[in-house]
Computed example of a mutant assay.
Amino acid sequence: MEVKKGSQSVLGDIYTTLDLELINTYHSDLENVTNIVFCSDKTAFVGSLNSSKIQKINFETNNIKVETEILIEVNDMAKFTDNEILVATGQSGLTLYTKDGQFTTFKSFSPLKTASVHVTKNKKIIVGLVEYTLDIFRIAKDSHRKVMIMNQNGDIQHTIEYDRDNQRLLTCPYRINSLKDRIVVVDNTDKKREGRVVMFDYGGKLHWTYNGCNRIISDQVKFYPRDVSITSTAMILISDQINHAIHVTNPAGKVIVCCDVKVLDSLS
């Protein structure tokens, strides 16, 4: 899929927007694809939660070639260095897959478990954590739903769980991204994977909450955010799985456009 730039005027402001164009498709034998981490234009790690595996793949002209297949539980993963990835397995340890094909525990967060992981442009590591529980969406007084920020050595620099008014920021931090010194989190809020997207800073100041665009979301139609990406022009792209949409917001959390991507499937 190719992203093309356009422009749109919103209340007197000019924003760069996106036009999505399908340029190629690649078919995978994985049951589902929940993560893609690019090493280069031609290679990537692809993770599958349902298949409990990660594949290192090479992109060829019209297909993909599996170079390595790794059996591991994978909730989320992020590029650490070239050909090394950090894996949030849903257990207490954050796992590092090294260049020589070995797994090591990068950091243990026991008694919490890792839900998500992100590496920032300046190499900070951000991990989403929850406690072990049968119902992750049931919040009790002793529940822990937080993010931790570390350096490359695994030294914890910030722990964020509550905002400045001592209110919980998160229910389940499913995906994480970052924009300068601010953290953008896809927060799942119930068993159906409804959710929201929140932005806060390292001090716990909540900057905004995005609950979906009114053109799609209503009393009958909910918001199901699954992943978040940020472009070089600071546009925030949010995939909305069940609604087959990509929501585009500016850095202030204001929606610019909602793109229906069902039409792209008919072209594949």
Rank of each mutant, 00 (worst) to 15 (best):
F80V: 09
D82M: 05
L112Q: 10
K124E: 15
P111F: 07
T95P: 00
K121W: 01
K123N: 15
T120D: 04
A115R: 15
L86R: 08
G101W: 04
I85R: 13
T98R: 08
P111I: 08
K107L: 04
F109P: 07
D100F: 10
P111Y: 08
I125K: 09
I125Q: 10
F80W: 15
E84R: 14
T95V: 14
K121A: 14
I125C: 11
H118I: 01
S108P: 04
Q91R: 06
T120M: 08
V127T: 12
G101T: 02
K113S: 07
V87R: 05
E84N: 12
K107E: 04
Q102K: 14
I126Q: 09
S110M: 09
Q102L: 12
S116C: 01
S92I: 00
P111S: 09
G128H: 09
T120G: 05
I126A: 06
F103M: 12
S110D: 14
G90K: 02
I125N: 10
V117W: 05
T114D: 02
D100A: 11
G128L: 08
N83I: 00
N122S: 12
K107Y: 03
G93W: 00
Q102G: 01
K123H: 13
A78T: 09
G93D: 15
I125Y: 09
A115S: 15
V87E: 06
G128M: 11
A115C: 13
A115F: 12
I85K: 14
Y97G: 01
G90Y: 12
K123V: 00
V87W: 01
T95Q: 13
V87Y: 00
V117S: 03
D100C: 09
F80G: 11
A88T: 03
Y97D: 05
T104Y: 11
T104L: 13
L94M: 10
T89I: 02
N122M: 05
G93H: 06
D100T: 14
L96M: 11
T105N: 15
Y97F: 15
K99Y: 02
K124P: 03
H118G: 07
I126R: 09
Q91E: 11
G93P: 04
T104M: 13
Q102Y: 07
V127K: 09
T95Y: 02
T81M: 12
S92N: 05
N122K: 14
S116W: 06
L112I: 04
V119M: 08
T105G: 03
K99F: 00
L112V: 03
G101N: 07
V119Y: 05
S92W: 00
Q102D: 10
V87P: 02
F103Y: 05
K79S: 12
D82H: 14
F103Q: 11
